[in-house]
């Protein structure tokens, strides 16, 4: 047996490009609520080919998506990322082309409350096993969300069945897991740095085990989540029959570790973590938002149980 879950050099290079793009466009709190989706950033992702990854036209697969999502998570980057990759596994090339090109946004979810519906041009209704190309029966009523994303409430009319959604859901869960793992990894790193810099009681707070041990626990959990996400991506690329369950495990692991990392980052940073200008709030809210997509965690648990024959 061999175990190599590091990215290949071209995947690393793509991830570095995404990192560079995020640094140019905004990172962490730099991606603010005032502009939920900076045009330069989203267009940049399209130009790098990120938004078309996993499609026949765009090339690449789940590992490329995971590599990019880890970087995007580390920056707390916005956008209907999970929906875009999920749609890419379902839509025809002609339907996907404007989405991959960054000219149209995809809203992928379960009505009535739909991600990015206020700005989306393509709607995909999805449950854990099936998907439909759909359209809103009326203009979505805008709904502001926790992480400042422009969602919307509307019922959908199904236009065309998109068939079995198992693989698309697995890809979406893997993408979400990689993003969450990247976001959590970053939170643990910046919280650890802050703990070394911040002096209270005449010593860096990192020297208190009440601070260092929970960060270490988070680090262990996040390491596991990253590996699980990469393993799920490998399984998807290899068309392994276990891929849906692997994706579900990755997503459940990442949701738990990212939520824990968010709590711990807030504990470490104290009040500054609750400021909009600070490095934590923006990411912790996005973690919460993403932890519930693209399908409920209950569906992920059902996948895992199914794989066990339960």
């Amino acid at each position: 047996m061999s175990l190599d879950l590091s990215y290949r050099s071209e995947q690393e290079e793509l991830a570095r490009s995404v990192d560079g793009l995020c640094r140019r466009c905004g990172t962490g709190a730099g991606f603010t609520d005032s502009d939920p989706l900076p045009e330069q950033y989203w267009r940049g992702l399209a130009e790098l080919g990120v938004l078309g990854l996993g499609t026949a036209a765009g090339g690449g697969g789940a590992l490329e998506i995971a590599a990019c999502m880890e970087q995007l998570g580390a920056h707390g980057a916005p956008g209907p990322l999970v929906g875009t990759f999920t749609a890419g596994a379902l839509l025809d090339p002609s339907e996907m082309e404007p989405i991959s090109g960054g000219r149209q946004l995809a809203s992928v979810g379960q009505p009535p409350l739909l991600p990015w519906a206020a700005q989306a041009g393509v709607f995909v209704e999805i449950d854990s096993s099936e998907a439909w190309l759909s359209r809103p029966v009326s203009a979505p009523e805008p709904v502001d969300t926790t992480a400042g994303e422009p969602w919307g409430r509307t019922e959908l009319e199904r236009l065309r069945p998109l068939g079995d959604a198992t693989t698309a859901v697995a890809l979406g869960q893997t993408a979400a897991a990689a993003y969450l793992a990247g976001a959590a990894q970053n939170l643990v790193e910046i919280a650890s740095q802050y703990a070394k810099d911040r002096v209270q009681f005449n010593r860096p707070i990192a020297t208190f085990q009440a601070i260092s041990h929970p960060l270490a626990s988070c680090s262990v959990a996040v390491s596991a989540s990253r590996i699980l996400a990469r393993a799920a991506a490998c399984a998807l690329d290899n068309r392994d029959p276990d891929a849906p369950a692997a994706a579900a495990r990755a997503r459940l692991s990442a949701t738990a570790s990212a939520t824990a990392a968010a709590y711990q980052a807030h504990q470490t940073f104290g009040a500054i973590g609750f400021t909009i200008e600070g490095p934590v709030a923006h990411v912790s809210l996005r973690i919460r938002q993403l932890s519930l997509q693209p399908v409920p965690q209950a569906s992920a648990r059902a996948h895992v149980l199914e794989s066990l024959g339960i």
Partner: peptide, 24 residues
């Protein structure tokens, strides 16, 4: 609640925000 917790200003959204601050 699933996604409904994400509605900004809902009781559960506020509870989630407050829970992040609760330990500080």
């Amino acid at each position: 609640q699933g996604n409904e917790i994400m509605r900004y200003g809902s009781d559960s959204d506020l509870q989630m925000r407050k829970s992040l601050a609760a330990g500080v």
